[in-house]
């Protein structure tokens, strides 16, 4: 670990000002990701700005939906009566992630910004374009069992590891951000990025910007949603594949399907082809299967993760069935 200054921000404006001033500073949320990255010498901030005291911890209903404070803990969010009742998909997704201890520390903002678990990214003796742009991608022809099947580039094949964000993607959330001059809202689909030629950039946040909250619009998915996570052990493992599914139904007819996949891409993967196919169709196994096949048709496997295509297909069908059953 590299020595660093430790400062507690007094208000959001102070936090943003301090971070903006120092290109080598970093915010500290729960620290469950940042500290690991510092111990591994992957992140080397010289100044830690603790935002733990900021009053961005509220979870509440708003006129148009729900607001999650950026600094509310994952555990609190998942167990909040409002969230359990109206956004069970989000609650389930959060509880499928990490361990109870980590969720107790992890903040909603920090969760969105957690970095990939690609082991080459963590191993500073390895080439990695995300860590050192231009150094190459060790995973492309290496051990890539956990890596992407959608949207990857030759520059980076990593996947984004959050479970919570998969549900937020399906729920059409918006990320609320404070910049040094204003506030801005970033729709979830634009928040995380595909790697393209700039895998060093995980998301569209600029240095100096603070996530203040997450907004989730009202929806009619609560009765018909499911989060299915396939992993190497029954708890405390990142997803091989996960699916967040929500169905808005009119009897047996699907008015709209909300489907996002985890463990398959550099960002939450909205299964748009499957969604389009299902719109207006009856909720039948045949249709679920067709939708899943359509979506997986564009997947491109790496040498060690071919299984994810079949696993993705099955998990999509499974999640749709479970969501339908309610």
């Amino acid at each position: 670990m590299k020595p660093f200054q430790f400062i507690s921000a007094t208000n959001p404006g102070d936090a943003v000002a301090r971070l903006t001033k120092n290109p080598e500073a970093a915010f500290l949320g729960g620290g469950t990701n940042l500290l690991d990255l510092m111990k591994e010498h992957v992140s080397l901030p010289n100044e830690i700005i603790d935002i733990g005291n900021l009053s961005l911890k509220e979870i509440k209903a708003t006129a148009t939906g729900f607001h999650l404070g950026a600094l509310a803990k994952n555990t609190e969010t998942a167990n909040h009566p409002l969230i359990r009742k109206h956004l069970p998909l989000l609650s389930k997704a959060i509880l499928a992630g990490a361990s109870a201890q980590i969720r107790n520390m992890a903040t909603n903002g920090g969760n969105l910004l957690q970095r990939t678990r690609c082991s080459y990214f963590y191993d500073i003796s390895m080439p990695c374009n995300k860590r050192v742009p231009g150094s190459g991608c060790a995973a492309l022809e290496g051990f890539n069992r956990m890596h992407a099947i959608f949207g990857w580039s030759e520059q980076c094949v990593a996947v984004y590891p959050s479970d919570m964000a998969i549900a937020l993607s399906a729920l059409n959330a918006t990320v609320k951000v404070k910049t040094s001059v204003a506030e801005r809202l970033i729709p979830f689909k634009d928040f995380h990025l595909l790697p393209g030629n700039h895998p060093e950039k995980d998301n569209s946040l600029a240095h100096g910007e603070l996530i203040t909250g997450i907004e989730i619009p009202n929806n009619s998915l609560a009765a018909h949603s499911a989060y299915v996570k396939v992993r190497d052990r029954n708890s405390y493992a990142f997803a091989l594949v996960s699916v967040a599914a929500g169905l808005s139904l009119n009897g047996n007819l699907i008015q709209s399907a909300h489907l996002a996949m985890g463990g398959v891409a550099h960002k939450p993967w909205r299964a748009l082809q499957a969604e389009d196919f299902l719109k207006g169709k009856p909720a039948t196994i045949a249709n679920f299967t067709k939708a899943a096949e359509l979506e997986m048709a564009s997947a491109k496997a790496l040498p060690n993760n071919r299984f994810k295509i079949e696993m993705g297909r099955k998990t999509l069908i499974n999640a749709l069935q479970l969501a339908f059953k309610g």
Partner: peptide, 16 residues
């Protein structure tokens, strides 16, 4: 080198 290099990659069984 090991591509599995922490307890996030090297899985020991959990209670579940």
């Amino acid at each position: 080198n090991f591509a599995t290099r922490s307890f996030a990659d090297y899985h020991v069984p959990t209670n579940l």
